[in-house]
Design a protein around this nucleic acid. Sequence first.
DNA 1: AGCACTAAATGAATGTCATTCATTTATTAG
DNA 2: CTAATAAATGAATGACATTCATTTAGTGCT
Lengths: 260, 260
Amino acid sequence: MQVTTRERPVMPAVPAVEGRTAGNGSATSVAAAGDGAAAGNGGAGNGGTARRRAGRPSAALLDKAGITTAALELINRKGYDGLTMAGLAKELDVAPSALYNHVASKRDVLLLVEDHLTSLVDVSDFGSSPWEDAVRSWAWSYRNVFAAHTPLIPVIAVLPVTDAPQTLAMYETVSKGFLDAGFPQERVVSSIVAFESFIFGSAYDVTAPEDIFDSGSMADSTPHFTAAVRSASSGAGRPADVAFELGLEALISGLGALRG
Amino acid sequence: MQVTTRERPVMPAVPAVEGRTAGNGSATSVAAAGDGAAAGNGGAGNGGTARRRAGRPSAALLDKAGITTAALELINRKGYDGLTMAGLAKELDVAPSALYNHVASKRDVLLLVEDHLTSLVDVSDFGSSPWEDAVRSWAWSYRNVFAAHTPLIPVIAVLPVTDAPQTLAMYETVSKGFLDAGFPQERVVSSIVAFESFIFGSAYDVTAPEDIFDSGSMADSTPHFTAAVRSASSGAGRPADVAFELGLEALISGLGALRG
DNA sequence: AGCACTAAATGAATGTCATTCATTTATTAG
DNA sequence: CTAATAAATGAATGACATTCATTTAGTGCT
């Protein structure tokens, strides 16, 4: 079946030749999403573009870098619930199905975002500062970046690094830092994983509501816990930060002992 | 609008009086989902029950304990993707909308499951063993329980304990254990949170694919990391277990130092 | 006993999504 | 020049969670 009788007024539509060299191959290079320059579409300004004709446009409207940028923009503006394929398409002024010429699924979009965010993690102290200091700044930065992106954590945890070049680059830098600090080669990966596990878990804490430990009506039956919660509240700094600092320093001194 | 002309052959349907005392109040008691006895429905056997008549049945078909049990059964059989409200309803031989008389949302179902699982975490060593040993068995048990239920972690992390009595009970036991071991009251909650963060993060690791660190074609550009991955693979035990052990022992000795 | 109210079912929408498919148009390889 | 491929559109499709009107059964009050 499939009867599709439909007249549409043929409207020639503007030629739309933007001045940009085709350059950027799309399938081969694995998303060098670093610099946001690519895939313009200005964003603002085109309020009410005339409906685009069907068929391949002369210059591609989409590429991975542009999709990544738009996804981040959408996430920042509306949160992860607001990140829908339809919304992303609208942001890019494109039909939803067009996205599937560039990514295979929504998960792919999340991967692009994840890899971009990882490139924001600060690894600059490895090589220039003592191991303890380098790990400390890396860990705080890593936690801070992903605290605002916890929905990505389940994705990262199971993500083969092959699919995420920036992530792989971070591991390389950190691994070298651990090796140079005297870690035995067989322990490097396990140690990094231990730090990462703590970091991801701690990222969730940041998003927890203030009253998460309010025992409410059950306070009577949980005296020790209730008292501990109350006395903790006077401590300085956000609770999530206090716990992170505590655990991080414990890991740094505990794992640091593995060095030769 | 809403025209609903529809004849249905009136079929008396079996009286369905199951021998069980009504007992169990549903709204008041906050889910004592411990023993799975409640809300039978056998599971197997009733292949093709005659369609039930609309309207309130003489004996309630659903309660929180039954929903919890069925949800767990479904999760074990089909995973979290298989846990849908429709599927859960089918498991309980009930219309999907019936569930909403007992839970407000799917999230509520996840909360019931979470709280039940928490009751499976082993806290028995607190009070009977040295702090180090008690924490160790608690942490391993906690991680193992939730490794099979990582989709709950985002829920737990933001869950006010008020809504989860078993979870609160666990915190009470653990808090007392920390206090008895000599932890200053103001540090107890932060310390527990630090352990928990590590535990949740580590639960994800368990589910990671074997080849997660395979750097594939990028191996050349990541020599240190690639070498570290290779040399780690000869280590004993599952990688996730090795990392967990390493981090846990570091936390135990690091945080243990806080005691007076 | 009668009556209003509430609890617990059914069944039929609803609305939101991700994803797929046929079709159209443009570019590129042979 | 022609076949293949790439990149759009627009119209389904199929899961889902959730809501609503309706039906039936217990409960509390007078």
